[in-house]
Amino acid sequence: MKKWQDNKGWLFILPVFIIVAFSAIIPLMTVVNYSIQDIFGPGQRIFVGTEWFKETLTDPRLHEALWRQLLFSGLVLLIEMPLGIAIALTMPTKKGLGSSVCLVLIALPLLIPWNVIGTIWIIFTRPDIGLMGAFINNMGITFDHTASGLHAWITLMLMEVWHWTPLVILLAYAGLRSIPEAYYQAARIDGASAWAIFKYIQLPKMRGVLTIALLLRFMDSFLIYAEPFVLTGGGPGNATTFLSIYLVKIAVGQFDLGPAGAFSLIYFLIVLLFCYLFYQVLLNVGKGESS
């Protein structure tokens, strides 16, 4: 669609620009300030240049947290995207009470405050009072996410899949609903199998919403903080210390503002880089298919 060439567009976006700039640019500049100074107290600060960046980039604990984070986000995407699409395919297609109730039930986990999510899973997985914890322990397996790193990971992944797969389902379902009935009729006449329908009609039609789902899921899983903080507090040991948890540990726990600032900027850049890459790849995949 051709757009009107008109700089009065700026007037329309000015309120948004001011509000976001207030909350984004001023704090970002403060972080930049931290990252290049050594702060001892109010009014006592020395310019240190890129020292904090060097220190942060060579910090082995940061590297570990980064790998952990990448593994976590990768697993999240690998499990949630196929599962979300699969469940969306099983949803009723007709409008009515059935699909309404399904939608509301599926979306429920999305609307629970993040630390309450952690609380729910603490309750659910405790060996003494939790349904899942008691069930697994009754089968003769000692399951305790506060003692074993592997168990903490399993619990976290279950929680994450439980919490966020609904978003993928909702988006995929929306994509499916936008496919005209005529497409299916044509496929039926051609005698296409369910797999062929999925591959040649449903998947391409869902590409747009799935891109949104992938980007949102990547961002939010990469920035995860509240749920593992409540559930495991980053432990046992450092087994579930993801980037955000490590950052808050440095910034608030140890009050090392300089390294925390440098860490923040690097963290932000990593997220930006990944999102840009994903976006470009998905854009190009789309071009290849439509031509």
Binding site: A24, T30, V31, S244, S264, F268
Partner: peptide, 11 residues
């Protein structure tokens, strides 16, 4: 995409 944890103190 900005990590909320980044902005806590400045906020």
């Amino acid at each position: 995409m900005a990590p909320a944890a980044v902005f806590l103190l400045p906020f």
